[in-house]
Amino acid sequence: MRVGVVTFPGSNSDVDSMRAVEAVTGRPARSIWHKETSLDGLDVVVLPGGFAHGDYLRAGAMARFSPIVPALERFARAGGPVLGLCNGFQVLTEMHLLPGALVRNAGLRFRSEIVHLRVENASSPFTNAYRDGELVRFPIAHGEGNYVASPETLDRLEGEGRVAFRYVDEAGRPTTGSNPNGSARNIAGILNEACNVLGLMPHPERAADPVLGSGDGRRLFESLLAAVSA
């Protein structure tokens, strides 16, 4: 599996993503500067976490017009798996590859901690190595992760199984207390209609080795490997 990781000015989780990819696939990931214009030869593209362009104006607002974006749009529309983590999720909503938006955390605080998530759809290319309803622990580190969308969009996401991960407590219940940012319906990650684009606020790439406090994120990359090899 050949994975490309796009670096914007201000990305900070690109190296973590590349390490997680290499640990799982045994092949180094390709680093792609945002000014490049081709994604030829890649099986998967990762938009990493960070603060692209300083999050000026809105998170993801300027990254959305980077020179790499037209190639990214073509790659996604052709069914190529695109994984947007944290800031990458914000970029994907700004690109309209995913519906809704991510706004300031309801509690105003930047939240940096390990959270519990429930796998809501274990049949996507990003989640096939998990079980439906499984609890996993990923870290979060964001100030603007409050997912908002219209009630119709939310109903559609739920109805079509496009909520991939939800914030839950240790018992797996999506409570207000376990929701770190006020996201609608405790949503942590969503899929596009074709299920080849995932946006996720938590960081599986920072939970890809037990020494980091959790190894649960590793299987997200194993899922991609299985999906691409299939």
Binding site: R58, A61, E94, A101, V103
Partner: peptide, 8 residues
């Protein structure tokens, strides 16, 4: 296009 996000 840029200055506002019409979703929110």
């Amino acid at each position: 296009k840029l200055l506002a996000n019409p979703v929110v």
